[in-house]
Amino acid sequence: MLNILIVTRREWLAYFHTPIAPLYLIIFLVLSSALAFYLGGFYEREIADLEPFFQFHPWIYLFLVPAIGMRLWSEEYRSGSAELLLTLPLSTWEVVLGKYLAALGLIGLGLALSFPIWITVNVLGDPDNGVIVGAYLGSWLMAGGFLAISAAASAATSNQVVAFIASSSICFVFLMAGMPLVLDPIGQVLPQGIVDVISQASFLIHYSAMARGMLDLKSGVYFVGLILLMLISNWALIEVRKAP
């Protein structure tokens, strides 16, 4: 456990020593509030909730999370520092989890720093704060799913641009999995049973339920399961790189 946090701390030092952290936080906060106010009609709706704020998160994460995730491993392999990192007395699991938690923490910090909008709705009206907490958790969980996909993609290539494009594309497919955009072409080639399973994998459907305060167990299990699966893939990709 301590070793995981040692790796996390190193990543955080790098985030804040470079423009990565400030850039992420500023873009996330500006974009999420701007979209809430201008596209979401935060004031005009005259309803005291944060739905206009949360509904754009999937689209913001779609490019911001792969941008954070792409460097997690690609950069280590490109610069050669992987050779230092992986010959320290740390297990591959400790490094995989330490890196993941560092980026997840940065995303969490972005969400936490959006608290003024939460205060605003409480000043303007009388929102259901339980729903809002649930929505924050749902947003963080979905970002965690995007991040785990991006981390695995980053472990597969030492080219950050390739990692970014690959992870955004995979994240997009997961996001849209329940929509005709994805289901129709799949339905052409695969049997209905598989199409039904894929339609259940949609980030958008799971998330929009959570964003409206319906914290259901199925969605939680879905995201956690997907994150674990992707982290195992990440671990396996690191191990495969050592093999002949």
Binding site: N3, R9, A14, S79, G80, S81, E83, L88
Partner: peptide, 22 residues
């Protein structure tokens, strides 16, 4: 390692602290 790869995005002191902790 060959070419002495390092973490360019860290200060020397922080890097040595990281290795010590690890």
């Amino acid at each position: 390692p060959e070419g002495a790869p390092l973490y360019n995005d860290m200060r020397v002191k922080d890097f040595l602290r990281f290795v010590a902790a690890a």
